[in-house]
Design a protein around this nucleic acid. Structure first.
Lengths: 223, 223
DNA sequence: TGACTTTGGATAGTAGACCTCTCCAAACTG
DNA sequence: CAGTTTGGAGAGGTCTACTATCCAAAGTCA
């Protein structure tokens, strides 16, 4: 197919596709002549993937380029699949600076007492430390005990993640990287919906319990 | 304190603080004279919150402004606490366009059969539809059954969320909005760490079975 | 008192990200 | 063989989040 067809197929403008070609986000088509090139399904898939990572995953184009590099690279040692994937994801996350402070030590201590076996140098420890610290500043009451409760549920999610990774190492890198990046938004949306469902349940219970009419009923979100 | 002190206290440059003042992200200090203003702890908190929402939460300044507007607005009907919070969060999420297609219908059907009680017009249904669709295009094998498994774990998270919301309605809006936005990154980081922990468990089990030796430097990414 | 520095406020400028426009000559179309 | 379309390349545009400059009044110190 021509560039214009690729455009209508993916809903991305020709100008933008040209830009992606220039930036190396999209591999060149098979040149039929100096002013004619042929694109195929791999190009359609690639464009859709770039858009998904950008719009749904919220990644920058520079990050997407790095992600694409890793998941299309052929020579991946089957021993280091997860390592490579994690390193890609670490770079994908907007790592700003290194904190190395008390918050990182707290996270390490918490991980240990929670019983998780994790490399103490793992870059996501920094991410967690920063995020946890932000919650502290906002006085959200996120303490070790609540973190434990979150972690137990998240571990269940991670088990689903890991159990669905294919055996083939090349497919595995792709699956882990994309599965992590693209499922994150799914989980975020699910959380919002679940909050609504759960608080509705409480509201219903409160209404049944107190028998309040429409007016002045307080039981909304409160526990 | 002076603007310069606010700057050293928060680690944000004076120029940037002036910018925040102009944009309305930071309330003005108490003017002592035409060239002197007094700032206090509320300003320090506010600046830290803005930075947290920006750097940790990844929100744009325009979105942060809307969030601040809601969580500082005094007159919140205690009936609509969650509604207000959800609407704020809906605007906070980068809603691009309306899909209204088959993917939205699938999500609605899935929610119903999963047994969640949710407003069919909920904006996060669109978000979930988009995210799920992106996973489909990437061939990640995210089917209804796996979604059920994710949802069960996420429901546990939402129960923790809801159970920690304070009774006071004004505090509740703040808590729900910030708790949702700032805890998201915590959960994301936890998921990465949990994946590592879980797959280490499997790898350990496999290694005990096969007894592999590792040498041969990891073929790629180093910088 | 008077030189000097600091302050808040306003305006303009900058850097990066992500496109979008314009031009071009070759190639395809009727 | 006139007219349109194509791929390619570079410049230009828009948005976001700052950053730098300027100014006059206010504070500071000898």
């Amino acid at each position: 197919m021509r560039l214009a067809e690729l455009s209508t197929e993916t809903g991305v403008s020709v100008a933008t596709l040209k830009y992606y070609l220039r930036e190396g986000l999209l591999h060149a088509g098979r040149a039929m002549s100096r002013t004619q090139a042929e694109y195929d399904e791999t190009h359609v898939d690639r464009v859709r993937l770039v858009r998904a990572l950008s719009e749904v995953g919220g990644l920058s184009l520079a990050t997407i380029e790095q992600v694409l590099e890793v998941i299309t690279e052929p020579g991946t040692d089957r021993l280091h699949v997860l390592e490579v994937a994690q390193r890609t994801l670490a770079r994908a996350s907007r790592t700003v600076g290194s904190d190395e402070g008390a918050s990182v030590r707290r996270v390490r201590a918490w991980i240990e007492q929670h019983g998780w076996e994790i490399d103490p140098q793992d870059p996501f420890i920094d991410d967690l430390a920063r995020a946890w610290e932000a919650c502290d500043h906002a006085a959200l009451g996120l303490d070790e005990e609540r973190m434990d409760r979150y972690a137990d549920h998240v571990e269940g999610i991670a088990e689903v993640d890991v159990s669905t990774v294919p055996a083939d190492p090349e497919a595995a890198v792709r699956h882990v990287v994309l599965g992590t990046l693209l499922v994150d938004p799914v989980l975020v949306a699910l959380r919002r919906l679940a909050q609504q469902h759960v608080s509705r349940g409480l509201q219903g219970a409160a209404a049944r319990g107190t028998g309040t009419a429409t007016d002045d009923a307080d039981g909304m979100v409160s526990s």
